[in-house]
Design a protein around this nucleic acid. Structure first.
Lengths: 148, 148
DNA sequence: TTTAATTCATACTAAATTGATATAGATTAT
DNA sequence: ATAATCTATATCAATTTAGTATGAATTAAA
């Protein structure tokens, strides 16, 4: 059970967008250099995020991306769900007899509820939580409020 | 986030052991044929289960494996923990500046608590739950109590 | 209306993980 | 001794994940 890199990068992208919200639209190229991710890889990552409705985009020169919701409406759980493909557990047994169905349904039910509990906790961390912390720290350490 | 095959097979092995408890010690070869898993693969899977203290073994002829605890002391969560290697989420940011530490610790904390919630639910399903269901179903459907 | 900046769409490659097989050694009841 | 059984590695194949490359579609601006 691991936090795939796509989630880490995805979070960085969204966080970057959140912190540069005031600029309006932001270019992938800028994020790429700021976050030190290859532009091409980043372009791939932003796509599912966009399809999930977390950002909107505009093509052409002066185009770019922006958050589709306010940072406190975007949660860690949402980001993780985009990349961790929802997985239905296979049957424990490989036969088709009736008696294994009971086991399988017990396991599946527990699994589903466990996943729900997992995501519930992750719903509680928003981009706002993360970026507020960031700008605050920046302010404290440098005396400059760079990202506003 | 998926239930790896190792967990499915591991569960089947333990369930098989649980259902043949009365025989005392059980050979991997028997489990392999009953569960339709290659003996060699199965031998690999039983090792971490043994190291986790869920079963004990005896070598030589008439050797084999048996559960180290009663079936109601063995939970799905335990089995999953054996195979899903405990994974510490990497830092979101790759720089070493102070301001990213706050984000990372927020995320890590949420992640840890989410995992805990996940496993808590899975603690509630024991081998006994699964095997009791099985023998009962068998009884009902065939009139024969095969696994006792 | 051409040009250049940008997102969008795929195809491809490389590395890591997982699933499975193979070979041989260690232990022990008979 | 011998054969049955578990133990320990090595190897291979399949799948998934990470990352790169190529180029088309869109559009602001000169």
């Amino acid at each position: 059970m691991k936090l795939v890199t796509q989630v880490r990068y995805g979070t960085r992208i969204l966080l970057d967008l959140a912190m540069h919200q005031s600029k309006g639209i932001v270019q992938m190229g800028d994020i790429a250099s700021r976050q030190n991710i290859s532009l091409k890889y980043l372009e791939q990552l932003i796509m599912p995020i966009k399809n999930a409705g977390l950002v909107t985009s505009k093509r052409g020169p002066k185009g770019g991306h922006r958050l589709a919701k306010s940072p406190d409406q975007i949660t860690l759980a949402q980001i993780i769900r985009i990349f961790e493909k929802e997985y239905v557990p296979k049957e424990i047994s490989d036969d088709t007899s009736t008696y294994s169905e009971h086991q399988d349904s017990l396991i599946r039910e527990a699994w589903d509820e466990a996943l729900e509990a997992f995501y519930n906790r992750l719903e509680k961390v928003t981009l706002a939580d993360l970026s507020i912390g960031t700008t605050k720290k920046l302010w404290e350490s440098s005396g400059l409020l760079i990202f506003t």
